[in-house]
């Protein structure tokens, strides 16, 4: 298992390099630079700024400069947030986004898996029909609608919860719920389908005929097997939660990575775009590696080749 993890980490370096290269040339290939928005700057000053940040050099040379800095762990500086390095911004933004993402993931699992299991066990009942309608509706609602709805109910109408910024645990409730909503719905659908399939297996019938209680059968013999597909999607789901956080961070004015990424892209803040993209890619690689390890714990028959 340790060997698998080490191998995963080593193969991730070329992947990160590819991501860095693609993003770098994509950014430079399109018109517009970081100082275009400041319309009032005289051309001489823009030229000086470009020279200061070495943006006047050929793109290939800039790429080499960037990579050699990156190899030393220097992510560069932001052109828009004056005097702040990218590492500085990221070190504040990453914990916020990770907190938000994991709270939402936890909520989604806590809500989605039991809902899906209950629906499958009581197949065809009103509980099943209601749960499935809610979850189909749940994957059909844009995140901003859920967010706006929650803000309107709890923030504006009832005035019980704060609707912006990221300061106390109270601030975390609405954003995490917003972010968790559609993954929870998705997990409920997936869990239901998976549990239904496992419930038809022979070993479940055997467990029943041994006289095992209903819930013991469901929890011990069905759920563990039914959760394998659920674990499979947790990796991509974490990715969805990170990207979903663009919207949630925008809605609730949360200073996380999604927010910095969106403003960086709009401002052509090259180094900040690179920094956030690389962090996103690294998070994806790590979550996928964790999922592969989790597979083996859940189902030792599965041999994962790194």
């Amino acid at each position: 298992m340790l060997a698998l993890l080490i191998k995963r980490m080593l193969t991730s370096i070329p992947v990160l390099l590819v991501v860095a290269t693609l993003t770098f040339f994509l950014m430079r290939a399109v018109p517009g630079g970081p100082f275009d928005a400041d319309k009032n700057l005289p051309p001489a000053i823009v030229a000086n700024l470009n020279a200061k940040y070495q943006l006047d050099k050929p793109v290939a040379q800039q790429y080499v400069i960037y990579l050699s800095r990156l190899a030393k762990g220097d992510l560069g500086i932001s052109y828009k947030y004056i005097n702040r390095t990218v590492s500085d911004i990221l070190s504040e933004a990453i914990p916020v986004s990770v907190q938000l993402g994991f709270t939402a993931l936890l909520l989604a699992v806590i809500i989605g898996v039991p809902l899906g299991t209950l629906a499958a066990v009581n197949r065809g009942s009103w509980l099943d029909v209601t749960a499935m309608f809610i979850s189909t509706a749940g994957i059909s609602v844009p995140g901003f609608v859920i967010g706006a709805f929650l803000i309107f109910i709890f923030g504006i109408w009832l005035k019980v919860l704060p609707v912006a910024l990221w300061e106390s645990p109270w601030h975390m409730i609405l954003p995490s719920l917003t972010l968790a909503f559609s993954p929870a719905a998705y997990l409920a659908r997936l869990t239901r389908a998976s549990v239904l399939e496992v419930l038809e297996k022979d070993w479940v019938r055997t467990a029943r005929s041994k006289g095992l209680s209903h819930w013991a059968t469901v929890l011990k013999h069905t759920l563990r097997n039914a959760l394998v597909p659920v674990v499979t999607v947790l990796g991509p789901l974490t990715a969805i939660l990170i990207t979903g956080s663009f919207v949630v961070e925008y809605l609730y004015a949360i200073p996380g990575m999604g927010r910095f990424f969106v403003t960086a892209v709009t401002n052509r803040d090259y180094d900040l775009i690179m920094g956030t993209t690389l962090v996103f890619a690294a998070i994806l690689i790590v979550t996928n590696a964790i999922v592969d390890v989790a597979y083996q714990v859940l189902d030792p028959r599965m041999k994962v080749e790194g």
């Binding site: 993003t23 994509l26 991509p236 990715a239 969805i240 990170i242 990207t243 979903g244 663009f246 990424f261 969106v262 892209v265 775009i273 993209t277 996103f280 890619a281 994806l284 996928n288």
Partner: peptide
Amino acid sequence: YSLPDLLVMILV
């Protein structure tokens, strides 16, 4: 495919 759609869409 492993990259999040929204990330790619924003970037591109």
